[in-house]
């Protein structure tokens, strides 16, 4: 069954115009389609830091199988990734590296802060640990737990998918230029690249 009446080559559209198309048509907003495809093929950057990274890998492995959501491809290059899962405690020494990697990711990009150490410093309130990765990059979803089990991480991912699909995040970003209410200034004087409603 083709899109076009009795004609798989698309000639009907050319000869008859829009009337040449008869059925199997869905109409919708382009934005929904874009958001849907973004949510369904989100590639995470490999950014395992500590204990949570082990659970993140477990989520990607056979039993929990993140491939079901089009997310099995952990990209080593941040330029190919859409999602940064900050899995573990962020040290003072790692924070600049983390920021560099975030800056290297292409827009649109999202961040999940996995585990209490990434979210708030957790039990390590000391000289070495950044008290919450949202001081360094804007965070979209926080996953609680120490470490969060694969189910919690999956839930965080679903939450993110839902907010991407309803466009909430991009609307907020278009208004404020930021993620979770945090000012994002790019390095080297670049302005943030905003995609979405203007």
């Amino acid at each position: 069954m083709g899109l076009f009446k009795d004609d798989v080559s698309g000639q009907g559209l050319l000869t008859d115009g829009i009337e040449g198309i008869e059925h199997n048509i869905l109409t919708g907003r382009l934005e929904d389609l874009v958001n849907w495809s973004r949510a369904r093929s989100m590639w995470p950057a490999t950014f395992g830091l500590a204990c949570c990274a082990i659970e993140m890998m477990a989520t990607g492995a056979g039993h929990y199988d993140m491939a079901r959501y089009g997310m099995e491809v952990f990209r080593a290059s941040p330029r190919q990734a859409d999602l940064m899962i900050v899995a573990g405690r962020v040290s003072q020494k790692m924070a600049p590296v983390l920021r560099t990697i975030y800056d290297q990711m292409m827009e649109p990009k999202w961040v999940i802060s996995m585990g209490v150490c990434a979210s708030s410093g957790g039990m390590f309130n000391n000289y070495a640990i950044v008290q919450g990765v949202d001081q360094v990059v804007p965070v979209d979803v926080y996953a609680p737990g120490c470490p969060p089990g694969p189910e919690t991480l999956l839930h965080a991912i679903f939450t993110l998918h839902a907010s991407i699909e309803d466009g909430e995040l991009l609307r907020r970003r278009a208004e404020t230029g930021a993620g979770a209410g945090i000012e994002v200034a790019q390095r080297d004087g670049q302005v943030p690249v905003l995609i979405g409603r203007s």
Binding site: A95, V130, Q131
Partner: peptide
Amino acid sequence: GRIPVQFKGAP
């Protein structure tokens, strides 16, 4: 105690 984040060579 807690120390603010230090950035290396970033504005």
